[in-house]
């Protein structure tokens, strides 16, 4: 199961730069990142090429880090790309905890990343239904 590094931080200037500094220092390449903030704190998610190394570097920098499993699906970067996947998920009545996407090659390929309660199940289900669910090595080797 592919994982991303999830980091707790205070909502204050300079925190993100400290994280990217730690990641750069550890030779970690960031594929995609999202940040959400709540009452005075935030959570940053990093999809990277070396999640274990990323987690260690961020911990060393003083941040609480968790590695969370995700389901990453490769799809066409074209109209309706995402709309072929989401109805499938809806048909299983699965609630998305978080989701985001990024483009690999303009007009050709995009990746969508889902965070759900039971990622293994969702991964298998989407594979069975013709989606291109990425393996760990696919994802980290992008």
């Amino acid at each position: 199961m592919a994982v991303q590094a999830v980091v707790f931080m205070q909502n204050m200037p300079g925190r993100l730069a400290r994280m990217t500094g730690a990641l750069a220092g550890a030779g970690v390449n960031i594929r995609a990142t999202t940040i959400s903030s709540s009452e005075g704190f935030g959570v940053a998610k990093f999809l990277v090429d070396k999640p274990e190394a990323a987690a260690a570097a961020l911990k060393d920098a003083g941040f609480p880090v968790a590695l969370k499993s995700v389901v990453a699906v490769k799809m066409d970067d074209s109209v309706g790309g995402l709309d072929r996947i989401l109805p499938l998920i809806q048909s299983r009545d699965i609630n998305l905890e978080d989701a985001y996407g990024f483009i690999l090659e303009r007009g050709k390929e995009a990746v969508f990343v889902f965070e759900v309660e039971h990622p293994e199940e969702l991964g298998e289900f989407l594979s069975r239904n013709g989606c291109s669910v990425m393996s760990d090595s696919d994802l980290y080797g992008l």
Binding site: P64, V65, L67
Partner: peptide, 14 residues
């Protein structure tokens, strides 16, 4: 936030 407690969930934190 204790390092060991954080499991990457913003709802849990709230």
């Amino acid at each position: 936030v204790a390092d060991s407690f954080f499991r990457g969930d913003i709802k849990e934190l709230n």
